[in-house]
């Protein structure tokens, strides 16, 4: 029986959508075994089972909250040793990538980060990634050890595939490095009530053209009419108009929604890096020469303060 480890991303047992995508991808390679660290395994288990987890290895200890990251590496390694998996899939967040990297080093395995697809191959799984601000698409294979792969959000559509999802206690011994970095304080990010940026099906982003923090309400109104997440360019974030957590691009989030709508954004390479793989792209910009128009399926040359509110009204009218 081939098993594939999936590290669960959750907040107190509430599983985030990318984990369900990972379970779906893992089923292509073997039986998914979920690794749940911290509190809430009993809450998470039914959801994980529903999406194909045959087992849920659970560990909870104060170390996970009191010390940064390495306790999770120790735990994932314990699961690795206990299961002997064919591959390990980890969500591609900053933390996920660092955990995966340290596990790969400890287990003498090859590491692939930011995969957008994974499929079985003759010599082990073949992963697909984007390179150079998504100008290229590459495929890779791990040639040593057990493939450790971090997978980006929106890489697959979660499928229901009910499995046992039996919760088993995972025994973890923390190594000397586990308590090296203390978490002095932690402030959970406040929910905006809108979809998560990286997971959203539609993203509406504003840039320097929006002009002020107050004017971002124009972007938010459109986002709410569409049920979308709100994004921002770095120029808008650096100006202090919108929080950094919403930045799209090389040093923000990469998004790959069904629809990306850019308003008052020029389309610099670093911004494109974060949105170029969106399925449908539309833009509103008053400069007909703006590079963003090279990417669009539909573009409106015009003042966003005229076009966007009119669009919002029209959408509301159509939705009745």
């Amino acid at each position: 029986m081939t098993e594939v480890l999936v590290l669960v991303d959750h907040e107190n047992g509430t599983v985030r959508k990318p984990t369900l995508e990972l379970l779906t991808l893992a089923r292509r390679l073997g039986d998914p075994v979920a690794v749940h660290l911290g509190p809430g395994a009993d809450i998470a288990a039914p959801v994980l089972a529903e999406h194909g987890a045959t087992r849920v290895l659970a560990a909870d200890a104060p170390e996970f909250a009191d010390y940064h990251l390495v306790p999770k590496v120790d735990a994932l390694q314990a699961a690795f040793d206990a299961v002997g998996p064919a591959a390990v899939l980890v969500p591609s967040s900053g933390e996920g990538k660092e955990i995966a990297a340290r596990l790969a080093l400890r287990t003498g395995s090859g590491l692939v980060t930011d995969a957008v697809d994974i499929a079985p191959g003759d010599d082990g799984p073949v992963t697909t990634q984007s390179a150079f601000a998504a100008a290229y698409s590459t495929t890779s294979r791990v040639t040593r050890g057990v493939p450790v792969v971090t997978v980006k959000p929106n890489s697959a559509t979660p499928e229901a595939a009910p499995a046992a999802g039996t919760v088993e206690e995972l025994a973890v011994t923390f190594g000397p490095l586990a308590t090296g970095t203390a978490v002095v304080s932690r402030a959970p990010r406040e929910s905006t009530g809108r979809p998560e940026l990286a997971e959203a099906a539609i993203v509406v982003s504003g840039g320097r053209g929006v002009g002020s923090a107050e004017s971002f309400s124009v972007i938010e109104d459109l986002a709410d009419a569409l049920g979308a997440a709100v994004g921002a360019s770095r120029a808008a974030v650096d100006a202090g108009w919108y929080p950094h957590a919403h930045q799209v691009g090389q040093t923000g989030k990469t998004v790959s929604p069904q629809l990306y709508l850019a308003a008052g954004i020029s389309g610099a390479i670093q911004h494109r890096a974060g949105m170029q793989t969106s399925k449908t792209i539309v833009a509103v910009n008053k400069d007909a020469e703006a590079p963003i128009f090279e990417l669009v399926d539909y573009g409106v040359v015009g003042d966003l303060f005229a076009v966007v509110p009119a669009l919002t009204e029209e959408i509301k009218a159509r939705k009745g």
Binding site: I281, V282, V284, A288, F293, V296, D297, Y298, G299, V300, V301, G302, D303, A306, V307, V308, P309, A310, L311, T312, E313, E314, I315, R318
Partner: peptide, 15 residues
């Protein structure tokens, strides 16, 4: 893709 210039109808066209 298609690029249109807003002459008052841009929002409607995009919708």
């Amino acid at each position: 893709g298609e690029i249109v210039h807003d002459e008052g109808e841009g929002g409607k066209l995009l919708a």
